[in-house]
Design a protein around this nucleic acid. Structure first.
Length: 262
DNA sequence: CGGCAAACCTGCGAGC
DNA sequence: TGCTCGCAGGTTTGCC
């Protein structure tokens, strides 16, 4: 998507009225003619800053992806819901089989107060995300630490895969009540969260089944999971008999090593 | 308010 | 081979 920076959007087409939510009024018309000034991210939201002071907000949901290529064929492919063409002959298609994603437009000056962003917790990759900050957030929760890590109002941007991976690296039992983690255990957990997210971004993201990178390849980080989706396989860090275990917390799979994580 | 289940949607893999 | 069924992901909604 870096490839969009600096480009002018000359043609925007939507192929349905909504994703998870309806597109905002006059969505395509408000994008057409705009130049992209900057791409950024807040939690799992992509923020595209436009030259008229508005921001194009995109969430990929679970199966959303941006397909980038030349604009010589503008017909929508299967599950292409929005297609953008730039002045330079680039075609960017938002493709999302499950339509759990969403798009919105927001004035740059109101971005922090946008309903989808206002309640988000701190960015884990920022310097300000410290063990003290994490410990304080977790002290408010009596539920399991794994579930708390997925709460976007406590910490922004951790998904189900990375919650398991971070807890494994930090050696923390996913069922531990969040409030029982003190500063001492928040320290390795912060380090693990930062490392897991940074490595995943560096590797081009994770992917499962039909989720692919823009070039069609699986996200490389998929090949680096220590525990996620590895039930029954040996723990990569110890020789325990059971290997990686799976449990369900709040309806989501958690993978962990019972011997290593306490 | 916290915690949890269900809902949204589709593709895929397992099992018959 | 072809069918059904369960499950995966992120977030919101609704119920206790």
């Amino acid at each position: 998507m870096q490839t969009l920076e600096g480009r002018r959007l000359i043609r925007v087409r939507t192929y349905r009225a909504d994703l998870r939510r309806p597109f905002p009024p006059s969505f395509a018309e408000r994008l057409e003619g705009r130049r992209v000034e900057k791409l950024a991210r807040r939690a799992k939201y992509l923020t595209i800053f436009l030259d008229d002071g508005w921001v194009w907000l995109i969430h990929l949901g679970m199966s959303g992806r941006m397909l980038i290529g030349p604009a010589d064929d503008t017909r929508p492919g299967k599950h292409d819901h929005v297609i953008v063409e730039t002045e330079e002959g680039l075609r960017v298609a938002y493709n999302d089989a499950r339509r759990f994603g969403l798009m919105d437009l927001c004035a740059k000056t109101d971005l922090a107060e946008h309903p989808l962003l206002a309640a988000l917790g701190p960015e884990p990759l920022e310097k300000a995300f410290t063990p003290a900050v994490l410990a304080k957030a977790l002290s408010k929760r009596s539920g399991p630490i794994k579930t708390a890590l997925l709460d976007q109002t406590l910490i922004a941007g951790i998904g189900n895969i990375y919650a398991s991976e971070a807890l494994f690296r930090a050696g923390i039992d996913p069922t531990r009540p969040a409030e029982t983690l003190g500063l001492k255990e928040a320290r390795p957990l912060v380090a693990a969260i930062k490392a897991v997210l940074a490595e995943a971004i560096e590797a081009g993201g994770s992917s499962l089944r039909d989720h692919r990178r823009p070039d069609g390849e699986l996200g490389y980080f998929q090949h680096a999971f220590a525990v996620y989706d590895r039930e029954g396989m040996p723990c990569p860090k110890c020789d325990c008999a059971e290997g990686v275990r799976r449990l369900v917390q709040s309806g989501r799979s958690t993978f962990y090593c019972a011997k290593r994580q306490r």
